[in-house]
Design a protein around this nucleic acid. Structure first.
Lengths: 174, 174
DNA sequence: GTGGTTTCTGGATCGCGTCCAACAATACGC
DNA sequence: GCGTATTGTTGGACGCGATCCAGAAACCAC
């Protein structure tokens, strides 16, 4: 119910203009309860992607040494496969029309960086030099988020994310 | 005085454990005065870089069409030339020792994204496809921030940033 | 001095996020 | 049935960043 109420309000008034108190009021629960289910307001929108990023981090840090590019390709493909964050797509769609500034862009950049860091760490563990690893990682992170944005804008009958991220990995030199 | 007090406290207690009230107390002014000189707490640390990013955005959006890679190289070089953000280097140095997590990393990722967006917009204006522009932009943004981190960790007798960002641009395919 | 501009100040207000003690509801053992 | 854990919910207090504003203070020119 909380997620639904949040989605409705995000669409009605936008993400930033919706306070946690607004959400809980509409959902009919107390403010405290909100934080029993979400760690933050951003978690409502980004929780789905964050789980996948955690899985990516785990996969890349546990994978055996060697073949870093292959591990990264596989991890990113896994992240993209079956990606269905309805709430993120809605929020993104509603925001990109007005320039996608403010809080949502901040949050997006954090996810970009998290993916980038996971990739860069994996590359460095395989002997890549630091600057090069960070550049490639950032390229992948930025590309994945860009793919998600494009995908979210594609409307309800959107194709799979997989094709987009494959192209992104090509651009990033993987 | 505010910047000095902030620097001291950041080094003593770390960035996150220092509140705006702490800073103004040490500086002997009221909390309101702080926001007359800085738009946010992060501005104390990132203001110097932010100014350069604004200049980069202006330069890239006003430059004549064509030759995007050259404009980008020049803009990034300008950003790096004579870069001396004492306070950022200190905060970064103090933070990277403990993993560089939390607020500072958030703020860093925002700057990564701003640089990346500026670069990507310039490329798209020259006809680059969206995904490719975003990937290259993110690579540049991530690389510049990585270069700054490396540079900050290099100690007081650090070399110029210019050499580092040139290598980064090479990795990014520019 | 006087008048006007700039700066500083305190306080109110808002939102996010954390913490905790009290309370209700449910499930479980007997 | 009953007492008892366990779990979920609640309100409230708190700290923090940030915005806004009216009034006080400092400054400068004349």
């Amino acid at each position: 119910m909380l997620a639904e109420a949040a989605c409705e309000l995000f669409l009605e008034n936008g993400y930033e203009s919706t306070s946690v108190a607004d959400i809980t009021r509409r959902a009919g629960v107390s403010r405290s309860t909100f934080f029993n289910y979400f760690s933050s307001k951003a978690d409502v929108v980004w929780g789905g992607l964050d789980e996948r990023i955690v899985a990516l981090e785990a996969r890349l840090s546990e994978a055996p040494p060697g073949d870093a590019p292959e591990h990264i390709r596989a991890g990113i493909a896994e992240l993209a496969a079956g990606f269905v964050p309805d709430t993120l797509a809605l929020a993104l769609l509603h925001a990109t029309t007005m320039g996608f500034a403010g809080e949502l862009e901040r949050e997006a950049s954090v996810r970009r960086a998290r993916i980038g860091r996971a990739v860069a760490q994996r590359m460095r563990r395989d002997g890549a030099e630091r600057l090069r690893a960070d550049v490639v990682g950032a390229a992948v992170g930025g590309g994945v988020l860009a793919a998600i944005e494009v995908w979210a804008q594609a409307g309800p009958d959107r194709p799979d994310l997989t094709g987009l991220v494959e192209r992104v990995l090509g651009f990033a030199g993987l």
